[in-house]
Each structure stands twice: as structure tokens, then as C-alpha cells.
């Protein structure tokens, strides 16, 4: 086990960044979903959507 670690410890970095990319996608998806919900709530009431929501709130 330690033998394996000494040979492949650098794999920590690429694997971590892949996991982080997936997590970022998931969080972004959930945020955009909620933002769309909120926009829909405004539109359902016939109110204008606030400017701050129209912008692309990037990560």
C-alpha cells in the first residue's frame, strides 16, 4: 500500500481537480435551477424580472 502511494502520490492532483470540476458543475446546475425558479415566480405574478437575475452569475 505504501509502495503504491510512493509511486502514484501525484495522482492526488489530477483526480482532485476532476472531482472539483464535477462538484462545480453540480453546484452550478443547482444554482441555475433555483435562479430559474425565482425568475418563474416573478413571471407568474406578471412582475418584471430584476436586472440582477438576468445577468449570468458565473462561478
Amino acid at each position: 500500500m505504501t509502495e503504491l502511494f510512493t509511486q502514484y502520490w501525484w495522482l492526488i492532483f489530477p483526480i482532485f481537480f476532476m472531482v472539483m470540476g464535477a462538484l462545480r458543475l453540480a453546484l452550478r446546475n443547482s444554482y441555475e435551477q433555483k435562479k430559474l425558479d425565482l425568475m418563474k415566480a416573478y413571471l407568474d405574478r406578471g412582475q418584471p424580472v430584476p436586472e440582477a437575475l438576468r445577468r449570468d452569475n458565473r462561478f
Binding site: 443547482s30 444554482y31 433555483k34 425558479d37 425565482l38 415566480a41 416573478y42 430584476p50 452569475n57
Partner: peptide, 14 residues
Amino acid sequence: HRTETLRILKSYAD
């Protein structure tokens, strides 16, 4: 933080 802000905004909109 951002999601909570959206949630509060939603309760205002509702």
C-alpha cells in the same frame, strides 16, 4: 451563500 440569497429573494417574490 448565493443559494440562500436566492431563497430569500424568492420569499419576497412570493
